[in-house]
Amino acid sequence: MTRRALSFSAIIVGSLVWAAPLPAHHSFAAEYDSTKPVKLTGAVTRVDWMNPHAYFYIDVKDAASGRVQNWAFELAAPSVLQRQGWTRSTLKVGDVITVDGTRAKDGGNHGNARSVINAATGKKYGAGSSEGQPGEPTPQ
């Protein structure tokens, strides 16, 4: 494209703020059960700062049995998380966090995170969940 050859009637664009939805590349309802909220606290064992979703893993100790289970939680894509104040080092291995989210339908130790609180700092981060966003299949 030869930029010098172009002329335009529009020069300045106002800084419009759109209520941009949080997009996803898959159906939320096919993977997660909105009737099964989950809230867990544990230490981070792994962080995947990758597309199409960032993931983190935490070791969660069952208070009654003392047994430790590893859970995986899906976050939004890194670019979406960055707009909500995250960086790739927001979660580090060893951080103790509390995650609020929705459990996977397949019953595994897997969920979609809505928010994460860092126990050491008390800071809360939205997780860019696509739950309830436009484009989701209509529940029937």
Binding site: M50, N51, P52, E74, A77, A104
Partner: peptide
């Protein structure tokens, strides 16, 4: 500008899509 995004990078959803 939009950032790099490849769905194939770490797609873990397929195995959990049970409907």
């Amino acid at each position: 500008d939009f950032e790099e995004y490849f769905c194939t990078d770490n797609n873990r959803d397929a195995e959990h899509l049970v409907g």
